[in-house]
C-alpha cells in the first residue's frame, strides 16, 4: 500500500477516515481521462460534441457511437468507460419507455436525468463497482427552452448552460466561457463547438480522432438528432480554417 488509498480504496462500501470514497473518485477518473466531450446551450437549441479516438482502422464508420436518443426528444451522450456508458443509456431508454407506457407522454429530460442519477448513486453504496461513465442529457422545447444535464459517476446531477468533460475539459470550458452562447444559434454553435474541440486537442497525442455531434432545437422541431455528416464536415472545415487564421495572427 504505497499510494493515497491506503486500504480504504478497495470497495465503494467504505469511507476513508477523512470522508472520501476512493472507488467513486477513481470512477470519476475514467471520465476525466476519456475523450473530450462538450455540450452547449445556445439561443434556440443545444449541441453536443465528442472527440473520439478511433483505435483501429478496421472498425466500420461510426462503429462505437457515444450519442443516442433516449426518446424522440431527449439525447444522451456518454463519456468514459464505453460499456458502462452504453448500459446507462439502456437504463435511461428503459425508464423513458416505462414513463411512456405509464403516462402516455414522453419522459421529460429532467426526470430522465434524475432517474439515471439515482441509479448511478445506488452503485456508489458498495453493492458493486460504480459506473465509470458520465452522461449528458439534452432536450429543447418551446415552453422550457434548452435544458442540459450532466450525471457524474458519483450520482451528482447538475443542470448547465454549457459544460465539458474528459481529457481537455478545462481548456474547453475556458473556450466556451469566451463565447456569448446565449446569442448563438444552433448553426453557429456547431461551428464553434467543432472549433473548441479541435483547438483543445493535443497535436502530439490525439491522433486518429473523429468528431461526433448531436443536436436538438427549434430547427429539429424539438427532436434530438445526430448531426448530419456533411454539417459536421463543414463545421470541421470552418474550424480548421478559423484555427489556421488565428495561428497566423499570433
Amino acid at each position: 500500500m504505497s499510494s493515497i488509498g491506503t486500504g480504504y480504496d478497495l470497495a465503494a462500501s467504505t469511507f476513508s477516515p477523512d470522508g472520501r470514497i476512493f472507488q467513486v473518485e477513481y470512477a470519476q477518473k475514467a471520465v476525466d481521462n476519456a475523450g473530450t466531450m462538450i455540450a452547449i446551450r445556445g439561443k434556440n437549441g443545444i449541441v453536443m460534441v465528442a472527440d473520439k479516438v478511433i483505435s483501429s482502422k478496421l472498425y466500420t464508420d461510426n462503429a462505437n457511437p457515444r450519442m443516442f436518443n433516449v426518446n424522440d426528444n431527449v439525447g444522451v451522450a456518454v463519456a468514459g468507460n464505453y460499456p458502462d456508458g452504453f448500459s446507462l443509456k439502456n437504463y435511461a431508454y428503459g425508464e423513458a419507455m416505462k414513463w411512456l407506457k405509464d403516462y402516455r407522454e414522453p419522459m421529460p429530460v429532467q426526470n430522465i436525468a434524475n432517474s439515471v442519477a439515482e441509479y448511478i448513486h445506488i452503485h456508489t453504496l458498495g453493492i458493486s463497482r460504480p459506473f465509470g461513465a458520465g452522461a449528458f442529457f439534452v432536450a429543447w422545447n418551446k415552453q422550457t427552452g434548452g435544458r442540459l444535464f450532466l450525471v457524474e459517476p458519483s450520482g451528482l446531477n447538475y443542470e448547465y448552460k454549457a459544460w465539458a468533460v474528459g481529457k481537455h475539459r478545462q481548456a474547453a470550458k475556458a473556450e466556451i466561457e469566451k463565447l456569448k452562447i446565449d446569442e448563438l444559434d444552433v448553426q453557429q454553435l456547431v461551428k464553434e463547438a467543432a472549433r473548441i474541440i479541435m483547438a483543445v486537442r493535443d497535436e502530439n497525442k490525439d491522433k486518429n480522432v473523429q468528431i461526433e455531434m448531436g443536436w436538438v432545437g427549434e430547427h429539429t422541431n424539438g427532436k434530438y438528432e445526430e448531426v448530419p455528416e456533411e454539417v459536421v464536415t463543414a463545421a470541421e472545415e470552418w474550424a480548421s480554417a478559423k484555427l489556421d487564421e488565428d495561428d497566423m495572427e499570433d
Binding site: 405509464d102 403516462y103 407522454e105 429532467q110 426526470n111
Partner: peptide, 13 residues
C-alpha cells in the same frame, strides 16, 4: 418533482 403534476398525467395515473 417540485412542480404541479399536469391534469393529463393525473388522468393517466
Amino acid at each position: 418533482e417540485n412542480k404541479p403534476v399536469t391534469i393529463y398525467r393525473s388522468s393517466q395515473i
